[in-house]
Design a protein around this nucleic acid. Structure first.
Lengths: 265, 265
DNA sequence: CGGCACGTTGAAGTGACTCAATTCGCGTGG
DNA sequence: CCACGCGAATTGAGTCACTTCAACGTGCCG
């Protein structure tokens, strides 16, 4: 189900540090020294198959998942066995960063498709926090961005109806994929089944299916084989009443990278 | 609408520091030195009338709200003008603590009833963070507890139906009031109108009204004049499928206070 | 006493759900 | 190469929870 690779001083470990440091500096200034601390992390890398539970509700993990490729979902399981996805994560995300401070997991982590991850030991993270306030603040801010996405989910699921909810999910995932640099030709990975989309949005499969067909008929999106193509962003954004401000993409105070604009608009 | 009181070295300012320090030490160990830093805060205290917007979406506040009494709601406003409440806050909460790091507010804060608040200047907070990692971690953890509540709201609103959602809200607010020490005789403040309850749960007023009547007929709760009385906790918890683990009340590692048990169960 | 906000009730409409059957895509094995 | 199996997607039909609309009751305050 999962195989461990060599960790320590290989080029892959280097790439992990760079990815994490770059992600954090999208919103938080990091000094060269801060980056060195991050590069000194010695995570173990894993490849995990689609559907695997990475962390379960009630676990007390000693390391946090850092996602290199593929998609991970955070989820609750309710009494009747139903599943509610809380958020979806892509390359560069750290879905259970909060477990460094919270101890017991109040939700689980599942691999939506095949994923490659790095496990960051809490001890090492804490040791960096002790040495660099900037890194700690960057990680805190990262969890605050998470929280902003949760808030948006409450509003989307609470006030919008079927089509708009699905459209909103597409908007969010597409923009985040752009931000992560893994959207090409208006297309990004979107490996959820329609059942899983429903579990993220509080809708039945049937409703999700009809919503997707509605968006297809509008020639707003294309969705097949786990890939989402945005054909008409304005239309999609309109359907979703999407307003990206909650993603706080403007925090790029210390970022060197130019602002990423969307194809249209 | 609001009147400013004397700040600085009065007994009230003392009480604010104690309240904040006690709240934080419910989940995070604080040294005497840490407490001194917190007591050195010089907040300005305000009384604000019910219905007032304390912070608006898009604001870039320079201080954070610390709630002394009354109830504050965080909310989104959607395109059609509808309101979605994201969370409800009581004595000891700091609803926009995240604005220290996020800058622009992606949601607003409204006084649900008459409230007394203290405004904590971001500069002073940051200065404490620079001096005490423990306080910073405590504040971070506080925002993580917030996030856990957001996640629970996603699940409750996404998977449960009317009666259960209302019951869940009652459970959550009651437990949090107990934790804050402001629940007496199985009763706590609950100043929301039924319309506002609907805006928190994604339900219409009519549905909320009928759900409340259902819970009343079960002799599970009493609700009048802005006060909630729990008559039968087990029944209520059952209706709500309430599981308090997401509140992480067990983090009392360094807390001196005994674990707070509920009346029943 | 009148006004107003909130709560309550009835009734009709609808978006989403459940149930169930069919189709599609794709990998496997004969 | 094709039949088969299986999970996912799609479709139709009936039901239900919640919504909307509208009216009325109630308590409080000026």
């Amino acid at each position: 189900m999962s195989r461990t690779r060599t960790a320590s001083k290989d080029p892959e470990s280097e790439a992990i540090g760079t990815l994490l440091a770059n992600r954090l500096s999208e919103h938080s200034p990091l000094s060269a020294r801060d980056r060195q601390f991050i590069h000194a992390l010695r995570p173990r890398s894993l490849a995990v198959a689609s559907g695997t539970d990475l962390v379960r509700q009630g676990d007390k993990p000693k390391e946090s998942v850092f996602l290199l490729s593929g998609m991970i979902g955070r989820y609750h399981t309710v009494a009747n066995g139903a599943r509610q996805y809380l958020s979806l994560h892509i390359r560069g995300d750290c879905p259970d960063l909060q477990s460094v401070l919270l101890g017991e997991m109040d939700h689980g982590l599942a691999a939506i498709d095949d994923v490659e991850i790095a496990m960051l030991p809490h001890q090492q993270l804490k040791s960096i926090f002790a040495k660099s306030q900037a890194v700690m603040i960057a990680c805190w801010r990262q969890t605050l961005l998470d929280a902003a996405t949760f808030r948006q989910a409450i509003t989307t699921n609470g006030t919008r109806q079927g089509v708009a909810r699905v459209a909103h999910l597409f908007c969010e995932q597409y923009v985040r994929a752009q931000q992560a640099g893994i959207a090409i030709d208006n297309t990004c990975s979107f490996p959820l089944t329609q059942t899983q989309i429903g579990q993220a949005l509080g809708l039945s499969v049937v409703t999700v299916n009809r919503a997707i067909q509605h968006l297809r008929r509008l020639r707003s999106i294309e969705l097949r084989a786990g890939r989402l193509t945005v054909l008409d962003w304005d239309e999609l954004e309109e359907c979703a009443q999407f307003d990206r401000s909650y993603l706080h993409l403007d925090l790029a105070s210390a970022s060197v990278s130019p602002p990423r604009h969307h194809g249209r608009r």
